[in-house]
């Protein structure tokens, strides 16, 4: 490469900001549509198991709702029998559950899923 090209490249690079970010002080910006950690809305979930049926990774399992929370669906009050429980280490964040949910109780937030030293990491209705 000719010397002129190198000098030009050098001065251009010196004038630029680094391409990397200062990680602990600065977080990676994520897009608005970013699909991260799953969130179940306790007030909206009616325990219909649709999310569990569509999940391609079989990450969502229906477990008994011990509290039998009273929920409202289409003007009808009922005691919820089951609640979804998602294993974050199995979840592939495809958002099919959120699309299938009849009450829009599931949302893929922009939080990261995180990691765990255990073999399971569950998220359930909150």
């Amino acid at each position: 490469m000719a010397l002129g090209v190198i000098v030009k490249e050098l001065f251009e690079s010196l004038a630029k900001k680094p391409a990397t970010i200062k990680y602990p002080f600065e977080k990676v910006p994520v897009a608005e549509r970013f699909r991260g950690r799953i969130h179940f809305d306790s007030k909206k979930c009616i325990g219909c198991s649709k999310c569990s049926i569509v999940c391609p990774a079989k990450a969502i399992e229906m477990v008994p709702d011990e509290k039998h929370t009273e929920v409202d669906f289409a003007g009808r009050k009922m005691a919820r029998q089951r609640i979804p429980r998602c294993d974050l280490l199995v979840c592939i964040r495809c958002e099919l559950c959120a699309e299938a949910c009849p009450t829009k109780a599931i949302e893929l937030t922009n939080k990261f899923s995180g990691c765990s030293g255990k073999r399971e990491m569950f998220v359930t209705v909150e």
Partner: peptide, 30 residues
Amino acid sequence: RDRETVLDLMETISGGRISHAMNRLGGVRR
């Protein structure tokens, strides 16, 4: 470094950098 820009664009459109989950039978999801 330039590839990061492309990945960010794909994330903006689909919500995922690598696994876009854009297709469904009959069309696209987003």
